[in-house]
Design a protein around this nucleic acid. Sequence first.
DNA 1: GCCAACGTTGGC
DNA 2: GCCAACGTTGGC
Length: 150
Amino acid sequence: MNYWLMKSEPEVYGIADLERDRTTIWDGVRNYQARNFLRSMASGDRAFFYHSNASPPGIIGLMQVVETDLVDPSQFDASSHYYDPKSTPEKPRWQTVEVEFIERFPSLISLDTLRQNFSPDDLWVVRQGNRLSVMPIEIPVAEKILAMAR
DNA sequence: GCCAACGTTGGC
DNA sequence: GCCAACGTTGGC
């Protein structure tokens, strides 16, 4: 089992939305490096839910990957913010996964706290200028985050 | 709202 | 294939 970190803006889709929906298709990723990480996910992998563009930003919960290699439906929807006119159903560009809510942490682990506990090499989200919205997390780092969450 | 970081696009 | 222009992300 691998661990990941996935970002979403709480104003767009936050942990409260996932807790209500229980599962969701993680659509809208339009960065190739992030997409490649989505493609390499396996059922049963776990992902930290990171609230970006929040005050403060940080890790707020945990979810589980339940379906992999899904074609992101929003790429074909002309009315969607995530519409990609260069993508076709025959040759879709963007794949994603379905995730399931596991837990919301009792309190958010802020980006500031993450910076105090991890180096940029161990946890990419604390790298300056980092814009990647899906990233892998090494197991020892994930376990430390889980310990901090409780 | 600002703006640094940085990925993408397109002319050449 | 280079790289300037442009658009987006995301912390602050």
